[in-house]
Design a protein around this nucleic acid. Structure first.
Lengths: 230, 230
DNA sequence: ATTACTATCTCACGAGTAC
DNA sequence: TGTACTCGTGAGATAGTAA
């Protein structure tokens, strides 16, 4: 869509930084070449091209040449800038999983109801989860891969503990939404009896009742990811 | 500076818009080719290159391929984005003139003191100018050219009028600063006895006294330009 | 259907150099 | 000093086509 050639982009940007938008700026092709990490010849060609395309204007006073960016050049820069801006901004800040509900085995419910966990859930998630986890079987490889790389994102860490007889592993919690309607948390367990293709979720209420979902139902889970601020 | 090749920029941006930052997105090389206005083969090559450079990850499930942008890819996009952003933002929003003061002939003072003008100056500039214009001779071609293209920028318009005997032309005013210390207005007259190499300025106070400048002194004038907001 | 190879073309770049 | 020509090299793009 933008008419400005991509290879000229950084050259034009360099002229902008030098202040050439509203004033004629004296510049040599060699210094420009250095700035854009190209040869003097390349810089010269860039200026020639930019000029013939009407993105810059040049004024020569004897040996000296001054350059100014035209409105057209400014507009083209803004075009590319806004393409980048909108593509970076419209990126939805969540990881999505699709799968089907499989029967919970009650084990999750047992462990997650232990005081060592519930105390932390209360303080870190803000609630004690309904006893019983929702287990979702992921069918596509990309979701399994996405689950693996959840580690890269910041999580709410529920620490493991010991009750004297045995130890219980940590639980990583990721705030999530089920079918874009129910708030929940996807949990990664240090020790789980599931393989990588199953994700487990906890919620304040009984998810199955709340959503009228049952074993075999297809669900979509969105895990929020902190948008990066550069 | 950015390692990402510019020709891959719009391809990566397209993947971003498709939501490939946090999820594996199914995409074909032909559809991608259409999106970036290149051939299917070019899109395929782009993906190959982006993958081997670690900017994207691909997952193939039989014939289908899904793509996700890596953190490295995201960072590279942000790098180029910020180069553009800063070059567009650091552009100082004023047009600069340099020249030497030449003797005013008093004519300007006479005209600018007429009621038909002073009334408008008072309401539009906020003050009645000191009687006497500052005339500055521009020595370099680029400043003369810059003066000509001042027309492209929005001005405060002081309309012409008639006193029954004759008519007086309009005056365009551009808020300006002299030597970065005195507020003034550069004025363009519909009818002037100067050629293009001279600019005239008015100010609330006597500029020469205020700045201790006299004929022959070098001055710098900055005319503010409305920064464009896209 | 797809993806991606090969061949070919164009053009971006740098070296040398004229002015 | 400057800019910008010619020319050689190679990267990027497309068409054709294999898998």
């Amino acid at each position: 869509m933008p008419e400005l050639k991509l290879q000229h982009l950084l050259t034009l940007a360099e002229l902008f930084t030098k202040g050439a938008r509203y004033n004629y700026i004296p510049i040599t092709t060699s210094s420009l070449g250095q700035s854009i990490h190209k040869s003097q010849q390349a810089a010269s060609k860039h200026l020639l091209d930019l000029e013939s395309d009407g993105y810059i204007e040049r004024l020569r006073t004897g040996p000296r040449v001054s350059i100014r960016i035209t409105t057209k050049g400014h507009v083209e820069m803004l075009k590319i800038f806004s393409v980048l801006k909108s593509s970076l901004e419209t990126s939805p800040p969540h990881v999505e999983f699709k799968g089907v509900i499989i029967s919970g085995m009650g084990e999750g419910a047992y462990y997650m109801s232990m005081k060592g966990y519930t105390k932390q859930f209360k303080s870190k998630l803000g609630y004690v989860p309904f006893p019983g986890t929702l287990n979702v079987k992921l069918k596509d490889k990309e979701f399994i891969e996405a689950k693996r790389s959840l580690d890269a994102h910041p999580a709410i860490m529920v620490n493991g503990f010991s009750d004297g007889k045995r130890t219980y592993g940590w639980v990583k919690c990721y705030p999530a939404r089920i079918n874009n309607s129910v708030d929940a948390a996807l949990i990664l367990l240090e020790r789980t009896h599931h393989d990588d293709s199953v994700i487990e979720l906890v919620s304040k209420e009984n998810i199955k009742k709340l959503t009228k979902l049952s074993t075999g139902s297809q669900v979509t889970i969105q895990v929020n990811v902190k948008p990066k601020i550069s």
